[in-house]
């Protein structure tokens, strides 16, 4: 048994969080959030892997071939789509923030403005 693929997912998650916590630029922070989210892709695909399995696409392989789990792959697709939309929305928010406050450094955005 090997834990390595799962640990890689955990590592990506924590690295992304570290970037978020220490970020000095909101665009960089949005990128870090995307990294954090990509850990879920790795975790899902690792869970669905089957030793010696191929892609669950039966266009040119026999229907009894050994394939990996298609359910987690479908979930990963959903994950990617949602991740992309969240990134787009957050970047739009950052543009608006920059217009209004003239900065994208989260530390300089501490005071509330009416």
């Amino acid at each position: 048994m090997t834990l390595l693929p799962y640990l890689v997912a955990g590592w990506i998650f924590l690295v992304g969080l570290y970037g978020l916590v220490t970020s000095r630029n909101l665009i960089h922070a949005v990128g870090c959030l995307a990294v954090t989210q990509s850990s879920t892709y790795v975790l899902l695909l690792a869970i669905g892997y089957r030793d010696g399995g191929t892609a669950p696409v039966f266009a040119d392989i026999p229907t009894d071939a050994r394939v990996v789990d298609p359910v987690v792959q479908a979930l990963t697709l959903t994950d990617v789509v949602v991740g992309a939309t969240v990134t787009a929305l957050l970047l739009a928010l950052v543009i608006q923030l920059h217009k209004r406050h003239g900065t994208v450094d989260p530390d300089e955005l501490s005071e509330l403005k009416g």
């Binding site: 693929p5 799962y6 869970i47 892997y49 089957r50 990996v68 789990d69």
Partner: peptide, 12 residues
Amino acid sequence: LPDFGTNFHPYG
């Protein structure tokens, strides 16, 4: 978690 590369994928 189930072992990596396991053959047990009931949903799959």
